[in-house]
């Protein structure tokens, strides 16, 4: 049984390489060392942002929705996607549109928008430099 499975895996890999399905940025192995620290950082940010938004929901204190453009310092596609995803993941900020080097975000409060404009989160994103 195990042999059959092994054979079918080998066949799949053989077919995939023949069809050129495996491109050169399929899996970010070289970023693995940076992921744990980034994960702890993003978890911390999520908890902080959650407490803030929960306060605003429960006390009906003023919200001041903002649409702002922020620069994206990441060079690679993967870095940009991770940046946009982590902005959306923290409540209070949602990335609305992503272009080549700017990112339009909708922020629930002015403070959240200012935090992102300063770009403290951007420095923490593991940026992949992929050699083409």
């Amino acid at each position: 049984m195990l042999g059959l499975g092994l054979a079918s895996i080998a066949l799949t890999i053989f077919l995939a390489t023949r069809m050129n399905l495996i491109d050169d940025e399929s899996y970010p192995f070289h970023l693995f060392s940076q992921f744990p620290a980034f994960f702890i950082y993003i978890l911390n940010e999520i908890i902080k942002a959650n407490i803030d938004v929960v306060k605003r929901i429960m006390t009906s204190s003023s919200i001041s929705p903002q649409l702002v453009d922020i620069p994206v310092p990441q060079k690679s596609d993967l870095g940009r996607v991770i940046y946009a995803n982590s902005i959306t993941l923290t409540p209070g900020t949602v990335s609305v549109a992503l272009s080549k080097d700017t990112l339009t975000i909708h922020a629930l409060t002015k403070e959240a928008a200012e935090d992102l404009t300063k770009g403290s989160m951007a420095k923490k994103i593991p940026d992949a430099v992929i050699k083409k």
Binding site: P65, P91, H106
Partner: peptide, 23 residues
């Protein structure tokens, strides 16, 4: 879920959905 009823427009409701979705 209370947040998606209290916030005034769609984009701010998205933030309330974000709470329930993440933490």
């Amino acid at each position: 879920a209370i947040g998606i009823h209290r916030f005034p427009d769609f984009y701010s409701r998205l933030h309330a959905v974000g709470i329930a979705d993440t933490l």
